[in-house]
Nucleic acid binder design. Sequence first.
DNA 1: CGTAAGATTCACT
DNA 2: GTGAATCTTACGA
Length: 208
Amino acid sequence: MQEKILPRKFYAKDPAIVAQKLLGAYLVHKVSKKLTLIGKIVETEAYLHKDDLASHSFKGETKRNKSMFKDAGHAYVYTLRQYSLVNVVTDRIGIAGAVLIRAIEPVQGIEVMKKLRKTEEFNIGNGPGKLCQAMMINMSLDGIDITVKNSPLYIVKGKESVKAKNIGISSRIGISKSQDLQLRFWIKENEHVSKHPKLTRKKGANNI
DNA sequence: CGTAAGATTCACT
DNA sequence: GTGAATCTTACGA
């Protein structure tokens, strides 16, 4: 595994761009000296700064979403009910865009992940709350810089870039607002995506 | 202070 | 497909 940590400039772009470029990259969590968990990112969603009612940043900075307003290349972890969800902050300071990591394919530490999830491999990382459980991601990682060398959490580039024709695009999942925005991206024909794309699409949506 | 809603998951019908 | 679990944050009174 190459250890080329993605630099801040990689994240300093539009969330929708970063979301697609993150597909196929590896999410690495150094839990301890002995344990490193790695998952390949197979599904993401972009959340914009403005004009996106579903984004936490829409109503401005709050205690919960303050990490979104940091510079690109930071982690934004928050709790939803009893689960944690992990994002990477994009764009520049003051532009609170982020990319939610929705699904991973287990790469390293699979046995540990199985125990954490109490399930088999196919059910480890196919959901934003699930992958956080599997990779031991929690609120202690909120707001950390994931581009520095000693960061416990970071992302490295994938072995092969995912071609555009192999990227699926759809509405985002689990939100009640701004459902018309096509900001969910996933690697086609990957078994670890969270769920089937929504069937309720607006007429004329030329995706999927 | 009370209440409602939520970027989810799981069990059940 | 539907609904409950479960809990923190946000917001209005």
